[in-house]
Amino acid sequence: MNRTKILLVDDELNLRETISELLIYQNYNVKSACNGQEALNLLEYWTPDLIICDIMMPVMDGSTLLEIIKDINSLNSIPFIFLTAKKESNLMRKCLLEGADDYIAKPFKIKELVSIIESKLERFEKIKNSHSNLYLGKKKVFLHEINTPLNGILGPIELLIENQEKLEKKEISAFYESIKLSGERLNRTMQNIILYQNLKNNSVEFNDNSSSEILNSFLKTKEKIFKIHEDQEKRISFEIDKAAIKISEEHLQYIFFELIDNALKFSSNSKIIIVSGERFNNKYYELVIRDFGIGFSEQELNKIGAAQQFNREEREQQGLGLGLFLGKIIIKKSNGVFTIVSKENEGTTIKILLPLCTKKCD
């Protein structure tokens, strides 16, 4: 049975450890961070059911952390409780106006904290049950990404049934190809939603003994990509050194596919995509994917998350905006490092460090 997950953020080590131990004793699954930035790093690959956070902290305070979380679709509905020693008379009102669900003043009794936690979790559970939690993006985008490929399947099938004796062989083949492409688009959408939910529930296995040969995985993925992006083989320039990487081939191909597909979609047909890979040191392999497309603004980079898309209508995007986010989570859960540097109208560079197989892997 999955235990309720709580993220505790506080810069006081002794208090943090004491609260963690008490909550663990209450059968909660607790992770802790010493400031807002460390909490954000955790939230990139681990989703709690509730966040308890101090207000005054170095590096990044609680108010800034909450402000960032409220802009991330996959996180902004998580109950957020401020923990503070401040004695302002209007503190409760201020915390609630900032978007927190509650606050508790230090010192406090553990029964008081547990009571607040249980109350907020109960309310959050009702919200999850009354709204589908499978996908957190905009409803109209979700429906579009289901209905468009579904119509692309049902429409041609209906025409084939009604006109099977009138159609020429080339026309029938074109209908079959259209059905296949729409089916693959719908399948990809559904698989990404399922993967998102499984990652969120921590039900995806990451075996430390998994291994993939990175060049071979890239070449297999490249073939899949060109079935979608026809006649664009010349757009990808690659130089990838062979190496055994400590990640499953399924996950490595997913990373390649989503990141390269994004690079192709968000840059014009005249722009190339550069993919390079080499040993970074004795422990890591560095993979770099660079495009010269529309790029992200600094504000957009800070908001990348599940179901997050920017200027969808202007950029004519397909998909739910999950690929980049899910790839980033897989990299983090595989003990890798993900960085992204981008500038509007100049392009995006993604650098990934993945652990090398330093001993025999499966």
Rank of each mutant, 00 (worst) to 15 (best):
K234G: 13
R290P: 00
E344M: 14
L353N: 02
K140D: 11
D10E: 11
A243S: 09
Q309K: 08
I228A: 13
E158I: 10
I117S: 00
Y103Q: 02
H229F: 14
A105W: 01
N14M: 14
L113H: 01
L186F: 01
G36K: 07
I304N: 05
D49S: 12
I179N: 04
S342N: 08
L15S: 10
K328F: 00
I330K: 00
I52G: 03
G152R: 03
Q309W: 04
K170F: 02
T189K: 10
G319C: 06
L354G: 03
K328W: 05
E98S: 15
G295V: 04
K31L: 12
I6P: 02
R315P: 01
S203E: 13
V275E: 02
N262I: 02
T84W: 05
T221G: 02
K138I: 10
V59D: 09
I289S: 01
P149L: 08
K234I: 15
I81E: 01
I6C: 09
L97M: 11
F218Y: 11
E177T: 08
N41D: 15
I172N: 01
A306L: 03
P48D: 10
I51K: 04
K94F: 13
K351A: 05
C361P: 03
S173I: 12
V30E: 03
E38T: 11
N187M: 14
K5Y: 05
G152M: 05
C95S: 06
I289P: 00
A105E: 12
G327P: 02
F226E: 04
D208L: 15
K246C: 14
P149H: 04
L264T: 00
L167C: 07
K265N: 09
L91P: 00
S211R: 07
N29A: 12
E21K: 14
N216V: 07
T189G: 15
V141N: 06
N151Q: 12
L113Y: 03
E184Y: 12
